[in-house]
């Protein structure tokens, strides 16, 4: 979009660069034999972060203050509803997928209604809804884990010629998101709204409809992540979404999307997601004890964010 004169690499590439560094460090410590396994597991786990992160990116890009904190609970609820709908039957897998997406879409609409009708700040509205969604999920399954149909479990680890299919599908999602931002009317309007709401309104953009779509897409992505994650981890569990609250935001920001809105990068999310997963693997491989590991995680994140050149802030 804008011309860059700096010789530095673009901000969104830093995630990939740091991910590469982590991978090399891990391989150097554990030996070349583990390199392939390390990477492929990072790609699989990273894929889930990418799905929720892509949704969060749309919301964050829609303007300063916009954020979705309900992602973990929407994810959990979608998984429960989806598993219940399928009841472990292979022939209902498609129904289960649709159920997960529908729960997500409805949750996104509810989030936005609370924001626009009650004029709540997004951070409060989505946090409040997250408690409600979480308690629905609790009523659905209680503490029990609901098992997925075996077909879904098989898909989650399905390999064709040694390449896992699930992450490939997520890459397609990333490509679609990148094209939407660059070439779809909605994507351009989203970035315009994110830059300046009054200017967007005077440029004839239906500001509310554009934002509604962003929130609905975000929660729908959480529903999709729920479906895939339940298949991969063997079912829906109450704490399955917990890790994605902060990670969904972290991968977006580190991926080159402006927290101030109006600028988004879909591909960069992959770099950031790989970085987070490879960093965890690296610290695990080094055999560092938990407390120190958490400290190092925090320090590394701060270092990385400090190094990444920032375009516009605030």
């Amino acid at each position: 979009m804008t011309t860059r004169r700096l010789p530095l690499p673009a901000p969104w590439t830093y995630g990939f660069l740091f991910a590469l560094a982590m991978w090399i460090a891990t391989t150097a410590y554990a030996g070349i034999g583990s390199a392939g396994a390390t990477l492929s597991s990072a790609i699989v786990f990273g894929a889930f972060s990418v799905v929720v992160g892509t949704g969060q990116m749309f919301v964050i890009a829609s303007g300063p203050g916009n954020i979705d904190l309900s992602i973990p609970s929407v994810l959990t609820l979608s998984a429960y509803v989806s598993m219940t709908a399928m009841g472990g039957r292979d022939d209902l897998v498609l129904v289960g997928l649709l159920a997960a997406l529908a729960v997500g879409a409805a949750a996104g609409a509810l989030n936005f209604l609370a924001i626009t009708l009650l004029r709540l700040p997004p951070i409060i509205a989505t946090l409040a809804w997250s408690f409600i969604f979480q308690s629905f999920a609790f009523n659905f399954g209680g503490e029990a884990t609901l098992k997925p149909p075996s077909l879904l479990s098989q898909f989650a680890v399905w390999r064709v010629a040694g390449i896992q299919v699930m992450p490939l599908a997520v890459i397609l999602v990333t490509v679609a998101a990148a094209v939407a931002l660059r070439r779809s009317v909605w994507g351009r309007q989203l970035l315009a709204v994110g830059q300046s709401e009054p200017a967007a309104a005077f440029a004839g953009i239906p500001v509310k409809r554009v934002r509604l779509t962003a929130y609905v897409l975000c929660s729908t992505m959480a529903g999709l992540a729920a479906f895939l994650l339940a298949g991969f981890t063997g079912g829906a569990a109450l704490n399955m979404g917990d890790a994605y609250l902060l990670e969904s935001i972290a991968v977006v920001v580190l991926g080159g999307t402006s927290i101030a809105g109006g600028q988004a990068n879909a591909v960069g999310i992959w770099g950031a997601a790989l970085f987070f997963n490879l960093m965890a693997t690296m610290l695990n491989t080094f055999g560092i004890e938990v407390g120190v590991r958490l400290v190092l995680t925090g320090v590394l994140i701060i270092l990385v964010v400090a190094v990444v050149p920032r375009g516009r802030t605030g």
Partner: peptide
Amino acid sequence: GTEGVFGLWSIADNLTIRSLK
């Protein structure tokens, strides 16, 4: 400044936003 331009964008992006459809 506040109601007209989209500051992150080029001339072309700013000019075409009303005519995307």
